[in-house]
Design a protein around this nucleic acid. Structure first.
Length: 267
DNA sequence: CGTCCACGTCTAC
DNA sequence: TAGACCTGGACGG
């Protein structure tokens, strides 16, 4: 998905678009098999967004003068390619699957592969604290659970476990581990004890990516548009993932793990 | 044309 | 721990 950095940018984008707008309907694209929420809100509403790891929360609230009080949280995940886009009246966006209508246009959830999902609720119980916005609890959650079998697995795999590393995805794990000097195939418990800077890197790396305008990767469209002037910096950030000079291996979850070729794999 | 690959979960043997 | 869920871009013949 869009990983931690892109989720924050998505929330920023939704907030920027929606700050002065009133929405009056939700439309679900019938091709999408997800939950049909189009009849759930029958009064005009506002939208505010917040992210936590790889989850996005849209807070939908009725207007102060509404005869019906509504306050609901639409919890979303972006899948591999999900993003939001403002679409002016008279235009149709391909792969728009959830559409929030206002008089001036609509805010569309665009997702080519349809891996993104939504439901009413709250932050996922099985996902850990956000490494950027809630760093203390992020560290605490890991340290409190370090004795568990989950941490017997290689650090490169555990970094993708959303129970502890909410928001870390395939490019971030590569960039984080590339910046430590431990074998990425070492058991996670040992790795975190030998290289405690991993905790800080889990905040630093996504924060860098966020400040650079998010992943310049083909499936994900930066909602703020192309940041061409930032490409040089992005290339300086993305040192490992997708770099032909790096080594790669398919991990036990079927994902390609990119790493420094000086390490020997144990997988 | 075809095959491989992609920033992620899910759920079913 | 495989598939399943999806579309489309890159690249090879």
């Amino acid at each position: 998905m869009p990983e931690l950095a892109e989720l924050i940018l998505t929330a920023d984008y939704v907030n920027e678009i929606a700050k002065d707008k009133v929405f009056y309907a939700i439309v679900k694209n019938p091709v999408h098999k997800g939950l049909d929420i189009s009849q759930d809100i029958q009064v005009p509403f506002t939208i505010k967004a917040k992210s936590r790891g790889k989850e996005l929360k849209l807070e939908l609230n009725s207007l102060p003068d509404s005869n019906l009080y509504i306050s609901a949280n639409l919890m979303m995940t972006m899948g591999m390619a999900g993003h939001f886009k403002w679409v002016k009246n008279g235009f149709v966006e391909k792969h728009a699957h959830l559409i929030f209508k206002s008089d001036e246009g609509c805010l569309a959830f665009v997702d080519v592969r349809r891996f993104g999902k939504w439901k009413w609720g709250y932050w996922g119980e099985d996902r850990g604290p956000d490494p950027i916005n809630d760093f203390q609890n992020f560290v605490r959650n890991i340290k409190n659970n370090l004795h568990k079998r989950d941490f017997d697995k290689p650090i490169c795999e555990v970094l993708m476990n959303q129970k502890y590393f909410n928001g870390i995805g395939n490019y971030l794990r590569a960039e984080i581990l590339y910046r430590t000097d431990i074998n990425p195939f070492m058991p996670a418990r040992q790795a975190l004890q030998l290289a405690p800077e991993i905790y800080k890197l889990c905040k630093w790396a996504p924060l860098q990516a966020y400040n650079l305008g998010g992943g310049q990767l083909k499936d994900w469209q930066n909602p703020f548009g192309p940041y061409k002037e930032m490409m040089k910096s992005w290339d300086e950030f993305m040192l490992c993932y997708g770099n032909k000079n790096m080594a790669k291996v398919e991990d036990r979850n079927g994902r390609t793990f990119w790493y420094d070729p000086k390490w020997k794999t144990d997988i």
